[in-house]
């Protein structure tokens, strides 16, 4: 029988598992990045900084990180989800959706009613996921240019 999935707050001891699940960037660089994220989001104990993991058996099989940000780019307080990953072996089992629903529920408890994210145009998998949970193009457009 398949083991149940639990969504819970990340603990400092989840750091290595989260680094292992993050598929972007080199491991050495990621370790320092995630240590900073854990210091800011896991150890702060603040309700508006959220780092959740999905646990199956004793293994961390997914994570999601987000927070409330206010008045950046002229926007009233809103939730931002800026990192999400699910282990390959347990994809398409609804784990991403459960983590997303939980982070939305936490954001709602903080008085937030809009959640945003930003995804690389070529990252079809992640874009498709966010579409599947009801997200669509929002009111802000990301612009960029190369600095010569």
């Amino acid at each position: 029988m398949s083991e149940k999935i639990f969504i819970r707050n990340a603990k400092p001891s989840d750091l290595d598992a989260v680094v292992g699940l993050d598929e972007v960037g080199q491991r050495e660089v990621k370790q320092a990045y995630w240590q900073g994220i854990f210091d800011h989001y896991v150890k702060s104990g603040r309700a508006d900084r959220i780092c959740l993991v999905a646990e199956k058996g004793n293994a961390v099989v997914g994570f999601i990180v987000g927070e409330v940000r206010a008045w950046e780019f002229g926007s009233p307080p809103c939730g931002w989800v800026f990192a999400l990953s699910v282990a390959h072996a347990v994809r398409e089992m609804g784990i991403g959706q459960r983590m997303f629903d939980e982070i939305c529920s936490r954001l709602k408890q903080s008085g937030i009613n809009t959640v945003r994210t930003m995804v690389d145009l070529d990252n079809k998998l992640t874009l498709s996921f966010f579409r599947s949970v009801g997200m669509c193009t929002g009111r802000y457009i990301e612009l960029e240019r190369q600095i010569d």
Binding site: L127, S128, T137
Partner: peptide, 22 residues
């Protein structure tokens, strides 16, 4: 065109049907 394609290429039939049902 690139933006249009990015939108259309990330909406699966499952997502479109889910949204239609909602």
């Amino acid at each position: 065109d690139n933006l249009t394609k990015a939108v259309l290429d990330t909406i699966t039939l499952a997502t479109a049907l889910k949204n239609s049902r909602l």
